[in-house]
Amino acid sequence: MKAIKEIFIKGVIKDNPIFRQILGICSALAVTNLMMNSLVMGLGLMFVTGLSSFTVSMIRKFTPKHIRMMVQTLIISAFVIILDIFLKAYLPDMSKALGPYVGLIITNCIIMGRCEAYAQNNTPILSFFDGVTMGLGYTMILLFIAFFRELLGFGTVFGFQVMPESFTPWTLMIMPPGAFFMLGIVIWISKNLFKNDEGGVTNG
């Protein structure tokens, strides 16, 4: 139980993939113009990271060390394809909105990073939990960024109009530069909010 709690705090705050490890930035920049897209992307990533870590951990005792990366890539891509098929079959609108980004989850560094850093040396259940938590940390930041981008760029939250009619949308926020600004601000805030308690040099 203690281990799980520790994983949780690490995944969401201390080792948050986005603002601490600066991993998975590409998709974080790309899909955060709408909250709905971010949510589905985040759930997709949680699914893939969790199950990939679980599978990698399951076969870690048999996997020859020097081909482990190849094995991890195979496992990750299999889960991503499953996710892609699922979205196409049951959530076609979402599949259309996310476009190529679902396939690109394969290249999301968070997943392989967790497989290498955690799943390789831990039990399947803990690895699964670690993967899901890392995905959760990612999803939370994505939703945070998307909230401001969608609110200022479209005047909506999850598609519901919240800004008054007279509000002029800041189109810049939904274009790529808006993502960079928001991400920079998030990293800046988090650096000041969660001081590095190890006292060492931060490598963000």
Binding site: A78, F86, A89
Partner: peptide, 25 residues
């Protein structure tokens, strides 16, 4: 051998899922 077996397993799983969902898609 390990890689071949693993690839075969995953290919089989994916092919099955693909087959099941083709019509729906």
């Amino acid at each position: 051998l390990f890689m071949v077996v693993l690839t075969a397993i995953f290919t089989f799983v994916l092919a099955t899922i693909n087959e099941v969902t083709t019509d729906i898609i």
